[in-house]
Design a protein around this nucleic acid. Structure first.
Lengths: 121, 121
DNA sequence: CATTAAAACTTAACATGTTAATTAAATGGT
DNA sequence: ACCATTTAATTAACATGTTAAGTTTTAATG
């Protein structure tokens, strides 16, 4: 993750906020519980992170009319721009990683980690 | 890691401090840089953690006479007791994990993670 | 239909994560 | 010996991690 943090050092977001933006760009507007699950964050952390991201104009929130406990979060144009501005660099880092570590080994690792998450107890 | 945190909930240490104690029990007295590397902690975090652990009587520190920049950290009897009191539970958790996830897959995962740590750039 | 339980955040309090700056001591080169 | 670098550890400032408690709204149960 060190290269990712280097890449983000000159941007307005850190690793966590970058993950939130990516989730929202990929999946569209989401409730916070879903964002937390996708971005591997706990709800209290996400609450704080979204507060600063909203203040920075990267996301917007509106309460769900179907269920007023929920709030639906959307990425703004500025937030989308952050992702798009780093897409090339991000892809280059992934390509370098696959090259040096091996795509198959990387896939194996990610699959093992995902399996481990859903087991235990 | 959830079962480990459950196990430690009733003890005087959290996950990080538990790792520090395990490293010291396994390797004997160490300088802080070595502890940080073994326990996957950054030095500023370790500095704070050791301050509270020393205040709690779990570790002791003395400055290295060969190189007075370094301080050598040792585990106390009380610190060793924390590890020994949880050794059975800890081993049971590992055995359960190997049973449910598969020892070979667990070994594969750990090896891949270790390799990944030493690559990149 | 009233009450209770559950769900989706939110807040609070404290610990750790992270980066940069600082201190003190050891090294290296001249 | 002198001075610039490097190293080990600390401090500071702010962000996130984590657990527990609180709020509001919805669902469940009697």
């Amino acid at each position: 993750m060190a290269p990712i943090r280097e890449m983000l050092a000159a941007s307005p977001v850190n690793e966590q906020k970058w993950r939130v933006l990516r989730v929202l760009v990929e999946s569209g507007p989401l409730e916070q519980k879903a964002i937390a699950a996708e971005a591997c964050l706990l709800l209290p952390s996400l609450t704080r992170i979204l507060q600063t991201m909203e203040a920075d104009g990267l996301v917007s929130r509106e309460s769900d009319l179907e269920d007023r406990r929920r709030s639906i979060v959307s990425v703004t144009a500025a937030g989308r721009a952050v992702i798009e501005n780093h897409a090339d660099q991000s892809n280059a880092i992934l390509a370098r990683l696959e090259d040096q570590f091996g795509k198959e080994r990387l896939d194996d690792l990610l699959r093992l980690l995902d399996d481990l998450q859903h087991i235990d107890l």
